[in-house]
Design a protein around this nucleic acid. Structure first.
Lengths: 211, 211
DNA sequence: ACGATATGAATGAATG
DNA sequence: CATTCATTCATATCGT
């Protein structure tokens, strides 16, 4: 998001205490640091597949798949979706506004509207097809794209930051043109998946781990 | 020791984007740079009104109001409060050390007033904290500003999380740092936040992704 | 010009 | 699901 993030050092912080002496080095970083690939996939799921609150199984599958790109646990996936969703909402929540002080241009808002990245990998349709078969197909991970992928970097970031419309003291900019592009619209996701995917049977059927 | 985390400084000079545009749009800076007036108001809200974590609506209002003094968005306000609060606390965390003995009259509520920064513009002064308004009076009425959320709640909170566990050299820690971290193992921090007496370990669900 | 510090922004992790 | 906390990155600003 924001400025192209890059994260170069993907897989390496692992094995915190394993192996060697053990405690000398603490668990590396206490917190999960997603690799770019992992993020890419997560976003793909989120935006292109409409996954927003994956169920336990989905989480398992997703994390399993993401594990190829680096260490990851189920909770990471869980939190990621939670946060991503929450933040998207939140942003909308208090950014809504921008009372048009001058005229023209609306939408000056949104700080981080990244939406739907258009995947480069081929994937004719993400529609139900894939989803449908999901549920009970152990082994196959029905995530967006099952194949491996050789796409190069995907940079879907966008540069935001508009030209302010600073008001206040001065007559302000007369221009009132809206230089903002990018984040306009594009927010709709099929949303069908959710339904197909989501069995929503029990709200608490996850396993408790911990200790 | 922390992992090489993340983001890169991308050449984000967006001005180039519009670059040669005709109109000057010199947001230049990628990040919001609060004007003195904005800061003044923010601090006023923070210190004199006890606003620490404004809710969405408040944020909207605040940002709307601050917009008079310059470009600003909801997120800026949001982050400002978050950061301000966090840093204040962070600083305090370190500061707490002294005076291990006698705790009674510890400065209660004395946030270091270093605000009232350069106030070149008008505005008499906001009477920086401490003396004046006493934070602990839950009776202060938030004039004007919609204030409704709790303020003045200078929750003593539990500030712990000191780094003492590191182990390493000397005994202390039992050697059971399980190589398998995740939430299964022990965290670097001793029981901190949550509570020292109640081991509430129920998130919503834990998806343990052990392989 | 740097280096240090202050602070905006982002995000993982938790809690309620 | 909303809110909050902690951490960390990125930069603006200031000092020397």
């Amino acid at each position: 998001m924001e400025p192209q993030q890059q994260q170069q050092p993907p897989p390496n912080n692992e094995d915190g205490g394993s192996g060697k002496g053990g405690f000398l080095c603490r668990p590396s970083s206490t917190r999960w640091t997603p690799t770019t690939d992992q993020i890419r996939i997560l976003k793909d799921l989120y935006y292109n597949n409409g996954v927003r609150s994956p169920s336990a199984e989905q989480i398992q599958r997703i994390s399993a798949r993401l594990r190829q790109y680096g260490k990851i646990e189920g909770k990471n996936v869980f939190y990621w979706f939670q946060n991503h969703k929450a933040r998207e909402r939140q942003k909308k929540r208090f950014n809504v506004s921008d009372v048009p002080m001058q005229k023209g241009l609306t939408a000056t808002a949104a700080w981080k509207p990244e939406e739907s990245i258009h995947n480069n990998y081929s994937m004719p349709n993400i529609t139900p097809g894939v989803a449908a078969s999901s549920s009970s197909s152990p082994g196959v991970i029905p995530l967006g794209q099952t194949g491996n992928c050789g796409y190069g970097s995907l940079t879907m970031e966008k540069s935001f930051r508009d030209c302010s419309i600073s008001s206040g003291g001065n007559g302000g900019v007369g221009g009132s043109i809206s230089p903002n592009f990018g984040w306009v619209g594009v927010d709709p996701y099929p949303s069908s998946y959710t339904d197909l995917f989501d069995k929503r049977r029990s709200m608490e059927e996850k396993y408790l781990g911990r200790e």
